[in-house]
Design a protein around this nucleic acid. Structure first.
Lengths: 195, 195
DNA sequence: ACCCGCATGTAAGTCGTTACATGATTCT
DNA sequence: AGAATCATGTAACGACTTACATGCGGGT
């Protein structure tokens, strides 16, 4: 089983979905910590079905192409439950911007400051977006967001990670931009080639 | 050019390195936001050389196998500089634990609490490790860590991201574990199958 | 006329991981 | 005797991305 398989089972545990819908949920719901395109999703759904973890029925539609609606099986639910409490293999977050930061010393102020200010804004916007979703959840779902046996709690908890992540990211970007700006203000001449 | 290529150039811009050393630096220095194994590094170094961004010379050693020491070229430095200020294509952080959180509602307390407490500890330990490196840098490098044209500033800035990341991660884990524990204390019976 | 949403797939290519392969020296 | 460090590579596999492929209906 691949991680994507579990991601899909996680969605199917909440509702029956077509491949197209899975792709949509993937973008909207779990997109901030796992993404997948339909070209990966369709074969994965077929594999889940072959493994007996999901089944599908064809739903005919008027004026639209037929769709295959997938449903998780009891075996699928068991597999998913077992996976949930297993510790994940630790993998470092691959982050290209941090890699760029590691070579920041090579470039003179301007462009780098712009980059980090821009990234700060992007992540700040993401943060606001997530926070407004959280506000919506709290208003709409009330105390259920803290009822740990409710899927709404799980959605809320995952979103919470996105919020903490984006807040920290924006903070770091601002800090870097400030250091760069400060470095430009109190400019020292670069070290001469031969001392 | 792949991102790995730039990661390697970033290391070579500071010092000449053999493939073996690059692999080591990769683990120790940039490992918390980009990892790579030697099997990927050796071919990538060959590609960098072919593209004229690095050169190598063979260094003979006593009692040890010969090594190829790579050096960045002026063209390599230019390529690296150009890349640094280009905005990265936004890719969501793939995080399996958040995916597990999204399915947390399916499992009863015990195992899930243990998982998140354990993860909190892991990230808490990472945090302490990074903080002690930061303390070492500040003590050893002094004000140079804030001199934006110094490689030490860049190292410091990248490490800073690791610190913010791990702090946020540990915080989130603790929050989830607390919610799960709270949910267990004030246990409600699960919704009956048919109401 | 053209684009967007719905709907499902395959193919080609890239990137990353694990395993295979070899071999000397030093430490436990 | 066995493990770890230094040192460089290749091969096979798996995961992920981008592009190709098709087709209807509704909106601008």
């Amino acid at each position: 089983m691949t991680t994507l398989g579990y991601a899909i089972l996680g969605l199917l545990s909440r509702e029956e979905l077509s491949g197209y819908d899975v792709a949509g949920r993937m973008r909207a719901r779990v997109g901030h910590f796992w993404e997948a395109w339909h070209s990966q999703i369709y074969p994965e759904l077929a594999r889940l079905e072959e493994a007996g973890l999901a089944t599908h029925r064809v739903v005919e539609q008027r004026g639209r192409p037929d769709k295959k609606v997938y449903k998780i099986t009891p075996a699928g639910l068991e597999t998913l439950k077992e996976w949930v409490t297993e510790p994940p293999v630790p993998r470092p977050a691959r982050d290209e911007l941090v890699l760029k930061a590691y070579s920041l010393w090579l470039v003179e102020g301007g462009g780098a400051i712009a980059l980090f200010r821009d990234q700060e804004q992007r992540h700040g916007e993401k943060l606001l977006e997530y926070e407004s979703i959280r506000a919506w959840m709290e208003k709409e779902w009330g105390e259920e967001v803290l009822r740990t046996d409710s899927p709404r709690f799980a959605s809320y908890a995952a979103l919470q990670r996105g919020i903490v992540y984006e807040r920290g990211y924006a903070e770091w970007c601002r800090w870097v931009a400030e250091q760069l700006a400060e470095g430009q203000r109190t400019k020292r001449p670069r070290k001469p080639k031969a001392v």
